[in-house]
Design a protein around this nucleic acid. Structure first.
Lengths: 198, 198
DNA sequence: GTTATTTCCTAACAGTGTTAGCAAAAGTAT
DNA sequence: ATACTTTTGCTAACACTGTTAGGAAATAAC
């Protein structure tokens, strides 16, 4: 009796529809605009059926984050496979990572918990400028000492990226990585950064 | 007639109370739990008075982000002032930055828009592991070639931080920085990373 | 004392996620 | 074919959310 199989098939179909409808909404207006009620409307079922497939709204969002990681890993493996030299591989991985993030912003946001009200908005610009100046000054001093022709602005952004990347990964987690390793990563990155400057 | 002055003073007082009550809530349960109605309750005024001081809820959150930037800049300047050598300054800045983020997580989240549902949760661990392995493999190859004694795990985290830092700053903005500079920063950071590996 | 202004509240609108409880449909057993 | 059981999916409610229109009461000005 294939009754249970047919039922399962139908249930899977509904789940697929939920994910599909949800993704269309996320893609169209960002993950902030995702709403259980709107999904229910789109799939032409009542609201509680969604809770038969997902524990709550967050679970749907996390589902997308997960598929994001799968997609990114694919892209990285593909990029890697095109090079034999490990240094070239790393460069290719970096490019693939970048491209993925830029063409799949919604996925990336859900993977790393980005995208709420933040101080990147114009309201905070004066504060950000002072912050940038404070750091850039020291970098400029180093460049002047070394006598090399390096852009302080570029180096400031590199510095900032390293700092922010490490910290935001840490803050989001839940990270499996312990505090000690994090401090080591920080010092590794910063000493590397300084070494590259002179 | 000091009537308008007294009125202004009172109005400022109410605004201060709003910010104070809001911050207590953010501090206690995270920015997600901030609610206009709960603020109104805490300051013992009705809901609409809050809209006399802030355009909307987001404006309150961004206010905290702004003060966060001021605080961070202070800390950075203080750390910098304790060293004469620019390389030491940069190291001190990195430490001060790190300490600020760790002791002021709520501020940091509001400055950079971090802290929603994300794939750092255990649900996504298997996907993350595969992702980590794909990258670590190439890094390990490089280390093997160089013959030096370096931790691939540490280098993987450094790589990831650089990538994620740059991208998440970019995605949040609104960034004043244009695409070209971003690509340059990426390549600067990655070539520096590779150089440090061999 | 009357008029004008500011202050501040009630109440509503339009949403949100989540869940308890029940009706109807579908399948099973007699 | 009927009676029973299980599954399915709905209505309606609960408890919230941000935001705003409109009016009452308190204060200041004439």
């Amino acid at each position: 009796m294939g009754i249970v199989e047919r039922r399962q098939r139908h249930k899977d179909e509904v789940k697929k529809d939920i994910i599909c409808a949800a993704w269309q909404m996320v893609k169209a207006d960002g993950w902030q605009s995702l709403s259980i009620r709107k999904i229910a409307d789109a799939i032409e079922y009542s609201v509680p059926v969604i809770y038969d497939h997902f524990e709550n709204k967050e679970a749907i969002l996390i589902e997308f984050g997960r598929t994001g990681f799968q997609l990114l890993t694919e892209k990285i493996l593909e990029a890697k496979s095109q090079h034999a030299d490990p240094a070239d591989q790393i460069k290719a991985i970096a490019d693939a990572y970048w491209d993925f993030a830029m063409t799949n912003k919604e996925h990336y946001q859900l993977m790393f918990g980005i995208g709420m009200a933040c101080c990147e908005s114009p309201e905070c610009l004066p504060e950000q400028v002072k912050f940038a100046e404070a750091i850039t000054e020291s970098i400029q001093s180093m460049i002047d000492k070394s006598g090399r022709d390096i852009s302080a602005c570029l180096k400031y952004h590199t510095f900032w990226s390293v700092m922010h990347g490490l910290i935001s990964i840490k803050i989001n987690g839940n990270s499996v990585v312990d505090m000690e390793l994090n401090k080591m990563v920080l010092h590794d990155a910063i000493t590397g950064f300084i070494k590259n400057l002179n």
